[in-house]
C-alpha cells in the first residue's frame, strides 16, 4: 500500500496516523513479523522497520540496546529485506525502512533500492543523510516509486525546510525536540512551538509526522491537536520488547495494548 493513500485515509477519517517503529531482528528475525502484526492489529497504520547499525548516533539507550540485540543475533541487511517482504505481503500497511546511510552506501544505492523495491518497501528514512548529500539517492528512489522521507527539526529554518520538502515524498519526519530517540515524560513548550511553525510552513505540501520521545496517549492527543498528520512511536514499543524478552506472548499482548491506546488517542 502507498503511503499517500494511507495519509488520505487518515485525513478522511479526521485522525492522525500512528506509525510504529521496531528494530528488525530484535528479539529475532522470526519474531519481528509477529510484532508488526500485533502493532497493526492494535491500530498502527504504518510499520517502520529499523535496520540495526553498530553506531546509531541519533538514538538513545533504548534503541541502541535494541540494535545491539539484533546485531548480536547476526541479523544482516539481506535477512531484513527478505523478512520485510513477508510483512508487506501479510499485513495491508505500508512498510518503511529506517537505516543509517552507511548501510545503503555499503550495498550501493542502486542495489539497495532495487532490493527494497523487490521487498515491497514504500519508503526510506535515513537519519544521517540530509537532502544535500542525497541527490542521486532521491533520483533513483523516485524512479522506483520508493518515497524518500527526510527529517526536519526545531533548528530547521523556513528556507531549509522548503528545500527539504522539495526532496521529500511520503511524509516529512518532524523531530519533536533537540536530542536523540528515547521516551520522554514531558514535552516543553518549545516542541509545540516548533511543530506549529513547521506544520504552518509545510502547509499541506507533504504530510507531517512527528516523532522522538512520544510514549503516552496524552502526547499523541496534544500533537494531533497541533495539526500533524502522523505520530511516530518507537522507544515506547521497544521498551516493551526489552522488558518481556523471556515471554513473547506477554510481549505481543502489551504491544497490542499500547498500540490500541495510542491509536485511540490519535483518533481525536
Amino acid at each position: 500500500m502507498r503511503i499517500s493513500e494511507k495519509f488520505k485515509e487518515g485525513k478522511e477519517q479526521k485522525r492522525s496516523l500512528l506509525i510504529g517503529f521496531i528494530t528488525a531482528g530484535d528479539p529475532s528475525i522470526e519474531v519481528t513479523p509477529k510484532l508488526a502484526k500485533a502493532l497493526v492489529e492494535g491500530g498502527v497504520d504504518i510499520i517502520e522497520l529499523g535496520i540495526p547499525f553498530s553506531d546509531p548516533i541519533a538514538d538513545g539507550p533504548t534503541i541502541q540496546s535494541s540494535s545491539m540485540r539484533s546485531l548480536s543475533n547476526g541479523t544482516t541487511t539481506k535477512d531484513i529485506l527478505d523478512m520485510s517482504k513477508k510483512i508487506v505481503e501479510e499485513l495491508d500497511v505500508p512498510v518503511v525502512l529506517l537505516t543509517y546511510y552507511n548501510t545503503i552506501m555499503k550495498m550501493g544505492i542502486e542495489e539497495f533500492l532495487h532490493e527494497a523495491e523487490k521487498a515491497g518497501i514504500s519508503g526510506i528514512v535515513s537519519p544521517d543523510l540530509p537532502p544535500e548529500e542525497g541527490e542521486e539517492y532521491v533520483k533513483l528512489a523516485k524512479s522506483k516509486s520508493i518515497n524518500t522521507i527526510f527529517l526536519a527539526s526545531p533548528s530547521t529554518s523556513d528556507i531549509r525546510l522548503d528545500n527539504i520538502i522539495d526532496s521529500t515524498s511520503g511524509f516529512l519526519y518532524m523531530v519533536s525536540l533537540f536530542g536523540v530517540t528515547g521516551t520522554r515524560d514531558l514535552f516543553t513548550d518549545y516542541s509545540s512551538q516548533a511543530i506549529k511553525r513547521i506544520v504552518e510552513r509545510v502547509n499541506g505540501r507533504v504530510p507531517v509526522a512527528v516523532g522522538f520521545g512520544i510514549s503516552k496517549p496524552e502526547h499523541v492527543r496534544n500533537f494531533t491537536k497541533l495539526g500533524v498528520d502522523g505520530i511516530i512511536v518507537g522507544s515506547a514499543f521497544i521498551k516493551i520488547i526489552e522488558n518481556n524478552l523471556d515471554n513473547s506472548d506477554l510481549m505481543l499482548e502489551k504491544l497490542n495494548k499500547l498500540a490500541k491506546e495510542l491509536s485511540h488517542a490519535a483518533n481525536n
Binding site: 546511510y101 537519519p127 544521517d128 540530509p130 544535500e132 527539526s153 533548528s155 531549509r160
Partner: peptide, 12 residues
C-alpha cells in the same frame, strides 16, 4: 568528506 549528520545539526 561532506556533511552526513542528523538534520538538527545541519544548521549548526
Amino acid at each position: 568528506g561532506g556533511k552526513y549528520v542528523p538534520e538538527t545539526l545541519m544548521p549548526v
